[in-house]
Design a binder for these strands. Structure first.
Length: 471
DNA sequence: TGAAATGTTGGGGCG
DNA sequence: ACGCCCCAACATTTC
């Protein structure tokens, strides 16, 4: 009776799980394991989310007659122990694509094979493996549109594996840690605001997908831009932990529909694919700009006070502060606002995208290494198919356009709630008597702007001139 | 998935 | 009736 180990990582689901399905098909005994590496723990918000996601996976495995073995340490050593204890002859996992993960998995795979074990890895989180799409010249893509065309040509509706009906039991002698022992949950309950859309896990992910396809999808092209409306899918954290696969998402979209909402939503999914394609082929972009000219950009990272004010939502620019506070309270920020706060940090404050990206990785529940890296480099103007450097968002105009009723800003910056809409997005220009009537003393109840938007815009353009060269 | 500066056009007020 | 100016509305260019 052969024993297989299924190593769960960023694929915390039973449905459409190629590693699990393959193990069940070929081995009578299947041991699901989660190996927590304390040296590679993920961001703070992500850990809180992970706790619930793992709990959901445990419950799902239990419901299907199995059990999750949790251990903590260096994954290669932990697998060795498990193999010795269980007599497993084969290990299955779904691939990860971050540079460190690839290095780790390659080493583990080689070591196991050298010892006579069978190791099988699968694609469980992308519509296309990064190495399966290339330009006509055989190169990796650097521009989104040709990438997306190639992806669509190759097919973006993969077959979806069903959730297994039943799983074989895990013998009781195989022990593991409790989930609590991993200490993923924060001591102070600062994560309470993270779960308003439902607790993490496969069931919530599938329910959200159904709810999204049912209604907001058809207005997605417009509604996704307004941070106070439920126009987005809310699937990002579920995708980031593999509680749902992109193939499952595609399968839920009507195959014959050709409405703008669906088209734009698929485009966003393909941006995620593009991000992983880029990170796989250009792993140095994790912390270096793809556009090498930006290596010489004189970032003002020494301005630690400005960075702290940005992190805390105390920049004095209402939409920026609203976004940063939404992030802190919920572990999530609306994408339109992500672009605005990132533009403000990198252009108006001249603080490097790497600092912003690190903060996002720590505070976002949907922290996805490739998406985050691509997004920050895109805004900073140094990435693949990036916005040109001179594309600088004006947070006042963005607020007037995308928070036209001020609901989002008033919710997250309550100290400005009584300010009339005319001045809500630019309180520093409000007449004194209006501020008095609204009970606001600038600098006491709400910060004065960290920088003048017009002046800092001009300064950013001038600074860009110092690295600009013609190729 | 930008914003600001600059250019163009056309209607209306007015001498 | 005509020319002139103003300016909103839109288009184009520039950063």
């Amino acid at each position: 009776m052969s024993t297989a180990i299924v190593w769960f990582r960023r694929d915390l689901r039973l449905g459409d799980n190629p590693a699990l399905t393959a193990a069940l098909a070929s081995s009578a005994r299947v041991i699901p394991v989660y190996l927590h590496d304390p040296h590679n723990p993920g961001g703070s918000a992500g850990r809180a989310w992970l706790y619930h996601s793992l709990r959901s996976l445990q419950q799902n495995l239990n419901r299907h007659g199995s059990r999750l073995i949790i251990r903590q340490g260096e994954p290669g050593a932990l697998l060795d122990e498990l193999i010795a204890q269980t007599g497993a002859t084969v290990v299955h996992w779904n691939r990860v694509y971050d540079p460190d993960g690839i290095r780790r998995d390659s080493a583990i795979k080689a070591a196991l094979i050298a010892r006579g074990l069978a190791v099988h890895s699968y694609n469980g989180s992308l519509l296309h493996e990064p190495w399966n799409l290339a330009t006509t010249g055989g190169e990796a893509f650097r521009v989104y549109t040709p990438f997306s065309k190639a992806a669509i040509r190759a097919g973006i509706r993969p077959a979806v594996l069903p959730c297994p009906a039943a799983l074989p039991p895990v013998p009781p002698e195989y022990d593991g840690l409790t989930l609590e022992a991993l200490q993923l949950q924060p001591r102070l309950c600062w994560d309470q605001g993270f779960y308003r859309q439902g607790l993490p896990g496969e069931d919530t992910a599938l329910a959200r997908l159904r709810a999204f396809v049912d209604d907001p999808l058809h207005r997605y092209d417009e509604a996704r831009n307004f941070p106070d409306r439920p126009g987005t899918s809310g699937l990002s954290p579920h995708l980031a932990f593999g509680e749902i696969s992109p193939g499952q998402i595609m399968a839920a979209l009507p195959a014959d529909a050709d409405n703008p909402g669906q088209t734009v939503f698929i485009r966003e999914l393909l941006w995620r694919e593009f991000a992983w394609h880029l990170l796989y082929h250009y792993p140095h972009t994790l912390d270096h700009p793809l556009d090498a000219r930006f290596e010489a950009f004189p970032w003002a990272d020494a301005q630690a006070e400005n960075f702290r004010a940005w992190q805390r939502g105390l920049t004095g620019i209402p939409l920026v502060d609203a976004g940063m506070r939404e992030l802190w309270a919920t572990g999530w920020m609306h994408n339109r606002v992500r672009m605005v706060v990132a533009s403000f940090l990198t252009k108006n404050l001249l603080i490097s995208w790497q600092q912003g990206a690190a903060w996002f990785m720590d505070t976002l529940v949907d922290a996805d290494l490739a998406n985050n890296t691509l997004g920050w480099q895109w805004v900073a103007g140094c990435g693949a198919d990036a916005a040109p450097y001179f594309r600088i968002f004006n947070p006042v105009l963005q607020a007037q356009r995308f928070d036209p009723d001020g609901l989002y800003t008033r919710h997250w910056v309550p100290e400005l709630a009584r300010l009339p809409l005319t001045w809500l997005h630019r309180p520093w220009e409000a007449p004194t008597e209006v501020l008095t009537e609204s009970g606001i003393v600038p600098g006491r109840d709400y910060p004065l702007p960290l920088v003048d938007l017009q002046q800092s815009r001009v300064r950013a353009l001038e600074t860009f001139q110092t690295i600009k060269t013609y190729k």
